[in-house]
Design a protein around this nucleic acid. Structure first.
Lengths: 186, 186
DNA sequence: CTGTTTAGTCTAGCGGTGCTAGGTTTTCTA
DNA sequence: TAGAAAACCTAGCACCGCTAGACTAAACAG
């Protein structure tokens, strides 16, 4: 039985290594470069071992990475709001959000862009996602039905993606944040 | 020489069929379902023929489709603005933009999400993209340096993507448009 | 009309992908 | 220590984007 626990520990540890390897490779070279063969190589095993940990294959691995991303993003947004209120809060959360997306491109991509199962958001990630949403709503003091928060979220999401795609002028990033905050405080 | 013209016409026609087939298949089943083999089949030729028309392969085909999308989107936005001014103009353009993205998902994906060459936007599509951007700027009467227009564009872009991903409440779509227009008129 | 060049097209194949069936080895249990 | 169970690997499937080289049809020159 003691060995069983050790085994479980090893399993858990290897699961971690798979996710870390996937995330590292994805951040470096994009998700296309994350292949099951490379992933298996990087943990010192062969392909089928991956499927013991993630029966759903590459898709499930990406899902697991994305899920961690939702947790981190919600925490990041909460921390950014801190004691700020009104315009300051919106600016802080916007900066934090854009920084997060910019500094973890592959993670953000897994969270929002990859064709993961559509029902994904409604299950595991739902609570994490809602937590992040609530952080946003608090930041702008949304006391309505959440419509304003949805629009703010969409704006930050769009800014993240267009910035990364190089379609917005990088030198105007701060201006955009200011502009955004001015239009969404209260 | 007359035959040469006929040949060119046939070439042009086949190029059209390739693009149409790609776009149709992509809209139906996503870009992953657009394979060079299926594409060749659907025009009645074999794979290498595609590379005679698009030496860059699948990527170049997607690029060509995306380019047409930029033209259509710019026209759509211009038409939507029409004689409207202020808040009405923003609402009209937002509705048109979101409708466009929703009704041509694969086209929109090719335009903004697929990992096409980064320098893509700076070349062919630049003028079309700028045209669409100008239409937006006009709609909101942006007389500044374009920062506001960038933020509005990002908001619409984000709304499009989050809506399609099923992460916004579909029944609140009109509310979001109203909210958006209220915050970006003037 | 004939021979030659050129353009168009196909066959076959490369290296890569995600994924898996089935046999082998290692580890744990009794 | 013998047998059961878990862990792991080999080998292979069907598919992907893409291309070299052979073949055929059309255009041209004499």
């Amino acid at each position: 039985m003691a060995q069983t626990a050790a085994r479980r520990r090893r399993t858990e540890e290897r699961r971690r290594r798979i996710l870390d390897a996937a995330r590292a490779r994805a951040d470096a070279d994009g998700w296309d470069a994350v292949t099951t063969r490379h992933l298996a190589d990087s943990i010192g095993y062969t392909q089928p071992v991956l499927y013991g940990h993630f029966p759903g294959g590459k898709t499930e691995i990406m899902r697991a990475v994305a899920l961690e991303g939702f947790v981190e993003l919600a925490q990041t947004c909460r921390a950014a709001v801190g004691g700020n209120r009104g315009r300051r809060a919106v600016e802080a959360v916007a900066v934090a959000y854009l920084d997060f997306a910019a500094s973890h491109p592959a993670l953000y991509e897994a969270m929002f862009q990859l064709p993961l199962d559509a029902r994904f958001a409604q299950e595991d990630a739902e609570s994490e996602l809602r937590e992040g949403f609530a952080a946003l709503a608090d930041a702008i003091g949304d006391d309505g039905d959440g419509t304003v928060t949805e629009v703010l979220w969409a704006a930050m999401h769009g800014l993240s993606l267009l910035e990364r795609a190089g379609r917005l002028r990088a030198e105007h990033r701060d201006d955009r944040v200011v502009e955004l905050a001015a239009r969404y405080c209260r």
